[in-house]
């Protein structure tokens, strides 16, 4: 799965956890923290994205990315490894 395909899934997951961001113009440089997600929100957003991607990896393996673009690229790399 390519990062361009993963980004919309991330946006949907953010809106699912933080409905007030519906319609927000997300940028790749946005961080979840700056968007108002607390630590539990951040973990839930990643879990929802993993489920949408049908990717079963430990949450700790998604740790590290600092913004939405980095997260999408990180998860794209993970799918490449998983296959």
């Amino acid at each position: 799965m390519k990062s361009e395909e993963i980004l919309p899934l991330i946006h949907e997951a953010i809106v699912e956890v933080l409905p007030e961001l519906d319609g927000h113009d997300f940028q790749e440089t946005d961080s979840l923290d700056a968007l108002g997600a607390n630590s539990m929100d951040r973990a839930e957003i990643v879990m929802i994205v993993l489920e949408a991607m049908n990717l079963e990896i430990p949450l700790v393996d998604t740790f590290g990315p600092q913004n939405l673009g980095e997260l999408a690229r990180h998860l794209a790399d993970k799918t490449a490894v998983a296959r």
Binding site: S39, M47, P58, L59, V60, T62, F63
Partner: peptide, 11 residues
């Protein structure tokens, strides 16, 4: 790290 600890707890 709060995020890593939470993720590990949930896993």
């Amino acid at each position: 790290d709060v995020d890593l600890s939470l993720m590990s707890y949930l896993d």
